[in-house]
């Protein structure tokens, strides 16, 4: 189901926009008339993605920012660049932020700041980017933050004693934890923004998608497993339709549901809704990103 709503005059920011679900979503949003600011790590891939989008949607309004989300200082630079583009283009603010970029790593590797790579890219980067872009999101009448999560967050808990799994790293568990973190961030962000807020956060489960995510930064066995498994998945375009629905359909802003799959709201895992865990994850993430609730006016809800 694809929302018929056009997005002319809307500004959308999407990370991981150069391939897979991100590229498919960018194409569809551009076709609906949105001004899309995509973020990608590689300059050549950004250029290629821009060409692909313009081929699919001649006259599309799209621009790319190059940013390596594995480094939090570069996430801050990305936010500054987005601010600059929004101002230069005379946009009112940001209508939709889609935190789509994600990575998988077979081995425990760390980012320049010393964080485990999956945790940094899949959770800390969107956590920080959302905070940095919140003032722009608050400027539009109805703003949406969409976290591209996964059904793999079910049956997953955090290892609070070693949240980045330094001592007992498991590639799949590390990935599942970050997808759980995406859902929990959406829930807690909505709580902190309050019911009257014009900004709403959502998590979307795109389902099993045939993308290259499991082929980058992984070793032989994981590559083989992902190739076999993803071959049964839906296409990135099919997955993107669920994200575009959340980005454009007016009725979703009136619903209280946070977690969505196939354009329908559903319940996230029970664990992801536990108040104590939500608070703990938020505090840990703030500490790691070096930010405070006070600065962003997002105090905890008692």
């Amino acid at each position: 189901m694809l929302s018929e709503q056009n997005m002319i005059g809307k500004t959308v920011v999407i990370t991981g926009a150069t391939s897979g679900i991100g590229l498919a979503t960018t194409i569809m949003l551009a076709q609906k008339g949105a001004f899309v600011i995509g973020a990608g790590r590689d300059k050549a891939k950004c250029q290629k993605a821009e060409e692909t989008i313009l081929e699919n949607s001649p006259g599309a309004q799209v621009t790319f920012c190059i940013a390596d989300l594995s480094c939090l200082s570069r996430v801050k630079v990305l936010a500054l660049n987005i601010n600059r583009i929004v101002n230069e283009k005379g946009c009112k603010g940001i209508d939709v932020l889609i935190n789509n970029a994600a990575t998988v790593s077979s081995w425990y590797t760390t980012t320049p700041e010393g964080f485990e790579t999956q945790f940094a890219v899949n959770h800390l980067a969107p956590f920080l980017l959302t905070h940095e872009l919140l003032p722009l999101l608050k400027k539009t009448p109805e703003a949406r933050i969409i976290m591209v999560s996964s059904g793999s967050h079910f049956r997953t808990r955090f290892n609070w004693d070693d949240i980045m799994l330094r001592k007992r790293y498991n590639c799949l568990l590390a990935y599942k934890q970050t997808k759980l973190a995406n859902v929990m961030f959406s829930i807690e962000l909505n709580r902190r923004l309050g019911e009257d807020s014009t900004v709403r956060a959502f998590s979307v489960d795109p389902g099993l998608v045939n993308t290259e995510i499991g082929m980058k930064g992984t070793s032989g066995l994981v590559k083989w497993f992902w190739k076999k498994r993803s071959s049964h998945g839906i296409t990135p375009r099919e997955a993107a339709s669920g994200i575009v629905y959340l980005a454009s359909e007016p009725s979703v802003m009136r619903e209280k549901a946070v977690y969505w799959k196939n354009c329908k709201s559903c319940n996230p895992s029970r664990y992801s809704q536990k108040g104590e865990a939500l608070l703990k994850l938020w505090e840990i993430s703030e500490k790691m990103c070096g930010i405070s609730s006070e600065k962003y006016k997002l105090p905890p809800v008692v």
Partner: peptide, 25 residues
């Protein structure tokens, strides 16, 4: 520790896999 090292371990196949441990551990 980094993509070139991971690649070097990968091309050693099974032997590379069983002799490698995560750096955090």
């Amino acid at each position: 520790t980094n993509p070139p090292c991971i690649h070097a371990i990968d091309i050693q196949g099974f032997m590379g896999r069983i002799t490698t441990k995560n750096v955090g551990y």
